[in-house]
Design a protein around this nucleic acid. Structure first.
Length: 286
DNA sequence: CTAGGATCCTGTCAGC
DNA sequence: TGCTGACAGGATCCTA
């Protein structure tokens, strides 16, 4: 689930508490979840936190960066004496005792605070990269413009490289625009009233402009609601759990009335992904 | 080069 | 209750 707004929320949450933090130890519980040499980071201090698309970048003063990608089910949970900051894939791990069964990496800091990297499906990872080589990284090097700041011109130019692909598949391509996942793909296409199975080449310039606006608007709505964070996650004892209800118009709302025209939202399959549309607002034939 | 499907892994849920 | 298959919010690898 973690897409750009979720990663941005984690960045904002961790930045103040990890400022200048010094690493005491890194414990790798699942080898495939950490790429690099953990020992290189012992005794180093955090210099800055950055985000590119869905990747979180923790830069340390040893000239290396820990790139964290949560993929489908990754979570980052920070625990200090009186603090619990959690983000990423929502689950009870946010409030449980850690480490648990899904904990893959633990970073211990000098002040005894801890950062847990949890990941049920092991698709996510932490990767050490030399700062000077970030742009040569196979993932970072290919990223398109960040979704929050992309210009229409650049977006349009990148869309043109995938004329025959379905528009939904195209905006999920991180080299076209960085940070869009299945949720914001559906939300933005609904915003712009574009059927996800249309070919990219059939979109008018106005539709492309609206689509980019929809991407930014839905992401901003998620950021404003706190993304997926502890603030809107209660669970465990009752109430809440689904942060999507805070901002999603169509995602996971199949059967519910479209907020614009009240037609029932449908769930279909496009480009191999579960896809939510309003059949009235989003027509295949324009 | 692009487009589309299989694949990594674990857990949950619907249906029988 | 237990089994089976479908599916899950990402990205890459392989094939055509």
């Amino acid at each position: 689930m973690p897409e750009l707004p979720e990663i941005e929320t984690i960045k904002r949450g961790l930045s103040p508490v990890l400022e200048n933090a010094k690493i005491k130890q890194i414990t790798v519980l699942e080898p495939k979840s950490f790429i690099g040499t953990p020992e290189d980071f012992i005794g180093t201090r955090l210099a800055s936190i950055d985000r590119r698309g869905k990747a979180l970048l923790l830069r340390f003063n040893n000239n290396q960066t820990l790139m964290i990608h949560l993929r489908m089910t990754g979570q980052l949970i920070f625990r200090a004496k009186n603090q619990n900051i959690a983000g990423g894939h929502p689950s009870d791990s946010w409030v449980e005792t850690l480490p648990n069964k899904q904990t893959r990496v633990v970073i211990d800091f000098e002040d005894n605070s801890q950062l847990f990297f949890n990941d049920q499906r092991k698709f996510g990872f932490i990767k050490a990269i030399y700062a000077a080589c970030e742009n040569a990284d196979s993932f970072l090097g290919k990223l398109g413009p960040d979704a929050l700041s992309a210009s229409v011109g650049k977006f349009d130019k990148n869309l043109k490289k995938h004329q025959n692909a379905l528009i939904k598949a195209t905006i999920l391509d991180q080299s076209v625009i960085a940070g869009v996942g299945n949720i914001y793909a559906d939300e933005s296409l609904f915003f712009a009233r574009i059927h996800p199975a249309r070919r990219t080449k059939t979109l008018s310039h106005d539709e492309i402009t609206n689509l980019l606006e929809g991407i930014k608007a839905s992401m901003q709505a998620s950021l404003d609601s706190g993304g997926s964070t502890l603030k809107n996650y209660v669970k465990s004892d009752g109430t809440r759990g689904d942060y999507l209800t805070l901002f999603a118009q169509v995602f996971n709302r199949q059967g519910q009335p479209c907020p614009r025209c009240a037609a029932p939202i449908e769930k279909i399959r496009v480009a191999g992904r579960g896809t939510h549309i309003c059949p009235e607002c989003q027509r295949l034939q324009p």
